[in-house]
């Protein structure tokens, strides 16, 4: 988007043209990622460093969010179920909600806010300070070092974070249910696993992989194509978050349709 060289035009036409140019540019960026990812040199150290940054450093924030989501969702669902005396269904309801949707979605949104923005800002600032150009001059592939490592780290860490989020959210829900309905942990988890299936877990994992890839690729793309100095860095960070979140919701919608299709088989 930022590197378009088309002469400025007014009105709707310019916008439409910019949109398609941006789409083509994004496609080329993703294509380049899939070309670069298979071939050496592999930046393992950078990958581990990014995994640490994206995964481990996000864990406290995501755990806390997951716990709060579990407690709040349980509390908010209770009155509705209590209306027809079905509070014993709380574990099943929370299990379905957390595993199928809320775990991956909350994790991805938090990660998009924290990780996506930091990737966008980091790569954006490197771009505007011409560090990327300097890397190219020094015979280092900046795309492989900066983009591939971050996108891979994001793709693999989000599913792991989703596992943590699911666990912590269910624990939060258990504490709430245990306090109010005096349900034991074994009963709670029996009901939790009774309500879900392998399809729920596998779809949740696959969805998280897609969310992770989206967060990483959008952050890198926005940073890699940032312009206009420090202002561009802020804009890249901001648009990375907004675009990643928007795409996550679209992907969630598509994943739901695909999962339902497999559920009916």
């Amino acid at each position: 988007m930022a590197n378009n060289t088309v002469a400025p035009k007014s009105g709707l036409r310019r916008r439409i043209e910019n949109f398609f140019i941006g789409l083509a540019s994004a496609y080329r960026f993703v294509e380049r990622f899939f070309k670069e990812v298979w071939f050496p040199p592999y930046e393992f150290k950078e990958l581990i460093r990014q995994c640490y940054q994206i995964g481990y450093n996000s864990l406290p924030l995501i755990s806390l969010t997951g716990f709060i989501v579990g407690v709040v969702f349980t509390n908010q669902s209770r009155p509705s179920l209590a209306e027809f005396g079905a509070t014993s269904w709380l574990p099943a309801l929370i299990s379905i909600a957390v595993v199928r949707a809320m775990g991956p979605l909350v994790t991805a949104l938090i990660a998009a806010g924290k990780v996506g923005s930091s990737i966008g800002a980091e790569i954006g600032s490197m771009k505007v300070t011409e560090q990327i150009d300097a890397m190219e001059v020094s015979a280092t592939n900046p795309f492989k070092f900066l983009v591939v490592s971050r996108v891979l780290a994001s793709t693999f860490m989000i599913p792991v974070l989703v596992m943590y989020t699911d666990f912590v959210a269910l624990m939060g829900a258990f504490l709430n249910v245990n306090q109010n309905e005096l349900v034991s942990m074994s009963t709670f988890f029996v009901q939790v696993f009774d309500a879900i299936s392998f399809l729920d877990i596998s779809s949740s994992l696959l969805k998280s992989l897609v969310f992770g890839f989206t967060i990483g690729i959008v952050g890198c793309y926005k940073g890699y194509n940032s312009t206009k100095g420090t202002e561009g860095v802020g804009k890249a960070a901001n648009s990375a978050v907004v675009m990643a979140m928007f795409l996550i919701f679209i992907e969630e919608l598509l994943a739901l349709q695909i999962t339902n299709f497999f559920r009916q088989l």
Partner: peptide, 15 residues
């Protein structure tokens, strides 16, 4: 990172 990933995988496997 290894421990972090391992714990995540353990949660998944146990589940």
């Amino acid at each position: 990172v290894g421990i972090f990933v391992l714990i995540g995988i353990i949660i998944l496997v146990v589940g």
